[in-house]
Design a protein around this nucleic acid. Structure first.
Length: 676
RNA sequence: GGGCCCGUAGCUCAGCGGUUAGAGCAGGGGACUCAUAAUCCCUUGGUCGUAGGUUCGAUCCCUACCGGGCCUACCA
């Protein structure tokens, strides 16, 4: 009996599930449901990834214990998955005795194999927070280019890489204090010793998509693999390493092992043997992951499994990222949509279908374009597939299905044959192709109904048999589609089962027509998407419930000024470029007698190029304090004749009545330079 | 700097060493009225990123370039 063990990457307990995560869980769930529908012995395991510094910090911020934090987040995660009809056989946690047990087992294998080295690592340490600082918790000045506010590993500005200990003026983002440099012993896995094995495993046997294999060959395997630092000194939320007190396994060490912990929990509940799933040649292991964690799942994880004598993955299925309307998800644009927010507004079937229609077995990113999302679901699912039942079920309610299958010109047989290609596409992860084939069958079925026009047949009592036959065909063709779509749309399959009082449990049901059954009362199986619901969902996402606390060094500003004077309409770059802003030096300033708000300024653009400008800044600035300073002026304004003379430009300032702040360039700017 | 992937109709994508390169959506015209303004028929639309090369023949293979995306473990 072929057994299949499937996993999705473990979501981190530091955040909520969003529509980007769902690409993976939907992709995996479809595959698992497909396997189960085909009669395979397939089990789907996942868990929360709960360890690490980020969890410690967050727990501290929220005034919770780590255990409490992860317990809460787990509840939310499970609720989100349930809402999207993602059906795990077990959903565990890395913070479980089962996971700890397998960490220990694998660890001792690594020790026995002589792959563990120990050496000192120097890191920044936050004495106030009492913790070593990961790169992203340190900010400072780039040692190469002097840019400020850079993280501990590399510089945004010049791209330099460095150690956090090289940062100039480092500051801990946890406490705002200056970290000290401390040294601690870390444990390393000498993965280079497994280089030949990894070369072989990644490049042969079809375990990886070809582009991934190429990527690894070109990127990591062409030279010695670096040791993997798998320990963190206390305090750390995780498992203490049994033979190295005071040190904890790094979160990425136990993350993948969480797959095993979850499996063990399921085994315990069902009286199964763990060995049958992780140490048996009869079991295929399939991991579904995002491309961001390729490294861990295609090099370290196989290495750990190999050393410990566990089965290696048959295949690691790697997908790309989600973009929304062609861009990265954005909180300010409302496209960073949480699973729970989606569920408040829309049917999960829409997203399951849309993702399925986009997914192929490639690492490409997929885009959720809302216009396309609405059009696709409405046209394909409601207009094509569900419509088939909608337009025939009513006529068949009195007659039921015929007792022998009528001549349909080979439509049912063709769709039954197509089932092979559809199944192969699902199996290969090319859901987009499966969907194309299914929709093509739906098109043929709609054409058939159109030609035989049951709405005309029912007008003639003599044609009641023909009417029943046409509906029998139409409904059976629909049912085939529902079976093929069952992995993607479990609820549609269930509703279809109820319509005919014959539950859909197996792929094989698509190969034989259903006959002689009564047809239940038809109820809409899927509502069209109202674009307003999508808008509402985006609007609801625009105010992020997940407010990221800003580092203490950056003050929080309220939006009073923006509200007082809202943004004006968008302009093109060309329109902006028409305004010629220049650096200018104030070389003379005087009060304008008789004017309430005006000062008269003489601006120099360098050389003998002077502008005479009347500026409405009287009261905010004394004339004498302006002389000599640099300002920004709009230099190509048409001269304007005023009561007191001609003004040849404007000085740029922020604020309004009562508060005026002139803009000035940073030191070094020269009069006459254009502001771009 | 290096690597991987991609560039086919307005949009999303199939395809592929060999007749005249396809589908869905969008656009245009018509039909129907059973169905959730669904469905059906007809139709507009592409120098298959550019330039070379291999070949009897290239959208497909090779090379370079251009454009886009992603990755880059103290960089190779």
């Amino acid at each position: 009996m072929r057994r299949i063990l499937v996993t999705s990457a473990l979501p981190y307990a530091n955040g909520h599930i969003h529509i980007g995560h769902l690409v993976e869980y939907i992709q995996t769930d479809v595959w698992v449901r497909f396997q189960k529908l085909r009669g395979r012995c397939c089990r789907y395991f996942c868990a929360d990834d709960t360890h690490g510094t980020a969890i410690m910090i967050r727990a501290r911020q929220e005034g919770l214990g780590e255990e409490e934090l992860i317990a809460r987040m787990r509840q939310d995660h499970v609720a989100d998955f349930t809402g999207f009809q993602i059906e795990f056989d077990n959903y565990g946690s890395t913070n479980s005795p089962e996971t700890r047990r397998y960490c220990g087992e694998i660890w001792s294998s690594l020790r026995k194999a002589g792959l563990v080295d120990e050496r000192a690592v120097t890191q920044l340490y936050d004495a106030q927070a009492g913790t070593f600082l990961a790169d992203r918790f340190v900010k400072g000045t780039c040692p190469k280019c002097g840019a400020t506010g850079q993280y501990g590993d590399n510089c945004d500005k010049c791209g330099a890489h460095y150690n956090p200990t090289d940062l100039i003026d480092p500051v801990s983002t946890l406490s705002g204090t200056t970290p000290e440099i401390r040294t601690a012993d870390h444990l390393f896995v000498n993965i280079e010793k497994l280089h030949p094995f990894l070369e072989e495993w990644t490049q042969r046997g079809g375990h990886l998509q070809s582009e991934v294999a190429n990527y690894l060959a070109g990127h990591f395997l062409g030279e010695p693999l670096h040791d993997w630092d798998v320990s963190r000194p206390a305090p750390y939320f995780g498992f203490e390493i049994p033979d190295s007190p005071g040190n904890y396994w790094y979160v990425w060490f136990d993350a993948c092992i969480g797959y095993m912990g979850s499996t063990q929990q399921w085994c315990d509940r069902h009286g199964e043997r763990f060995e049958d799933w992780w140490r048996s040649p009869d079991t295929e292991i399939h991991h579904f992951i995002g491309k961001d964690i390729t490294y861990f799942h295609t090099l370290f994880w196989p290495a750990l499994l190999h050393v410990s004598g566990f089965s290696l993955p048959e295949k690691v299925h790697i997908h790309g990222f989600l973009t929304v309307n062609g861009e990265k998800m954005s909180k300010s644009k409302g496209t960073f949509i949480r699973a729970s927010t989606y569920l408040e507004h829309l049917d999960p079937a829409y997203l399951r279908y849309y993702y399925a229609s986009k997914l192929a077995s490639r690492v490409d990113d997929i885009d959720l374009n809302f216009d396309e999302f609405i059009a696709k679901v409405n046209a394909d699912m409601v207009g094509n597939v569900v419509n088939l039942a909608s337009r025939t079920a009513k006529f068949a309610a009195t007659t039921g299905l015929a007792t022998s299958y009528p001549d349909d010109g080979g439509l049912f047989a063709q769709a039954a044959t197509d089932g092979q290609a559809i199944a192969e596409s699902y199996e290969a992860g090319d859901y987009a192709k499966a969907i194309r084939l299914i929709l093509a069958a739906g098109d043929r079925a709609n054409q058939f109904v159109e030609q035989r026009a049951p709405w005309n047949l029912r007008k003639d009592p003599a044609k009641v048999d023909e009417l029943r036959d046409v509906c029998t065909i139409g409904l059976n063709l629909f049912r085939q589609l529902a079976i093929y779509l069952a992995p993607v749309l479990p609820r549609l399959a269930q509703q279809t089962g109820e319509l005919f009082n014959d539950p859909i449990l197996s792929w094989d049901q698509s190969q034989k027509p259903l006959l002689g059954k009564p047809v239940g009362k038809f109820a809409h199986m899927m509502q069209r998407i109202d674009p307003k619901r999508v808008e509402a969902m985006v609007a609801a996402s625009q105010e992020p419930a997940d407010v990221e606390p800003l580092p203490e060094s950056v003050p929080f500003d309220n939006d009073a000024a923006l509200l007082a004077e809202p943004l004006t309409e968008t302009i093109s770059f060309d329109e902006f470029a028409r305004v010629d802003l220049r650096v200018a030096r104030v070389i003379a300033a005087e009060d304008v007698h008789g004017a309430q708000k005006l000062l008269r300024l003489t601006l120099s653009l360098g050389g003998r190029n002077h502008l005479n400008v009347f500026a409405g800044i009287k009261g905010a600035y004394e004339p004498e304090e302006l002389v000599g300073r640099l300002v920004i002026c709009a230099a190509n304004l048409a001269p304007r004749k005023m009561k007191f003379g001609v003004s040849e430009g404007m000085v740029v300032a922020a604020g309004g009545a009562g508060e005026i702040f002139l803009l000035s360039p940073d030191s070094g700017a020269k009069p006459g330079q254009r502001v771009h």
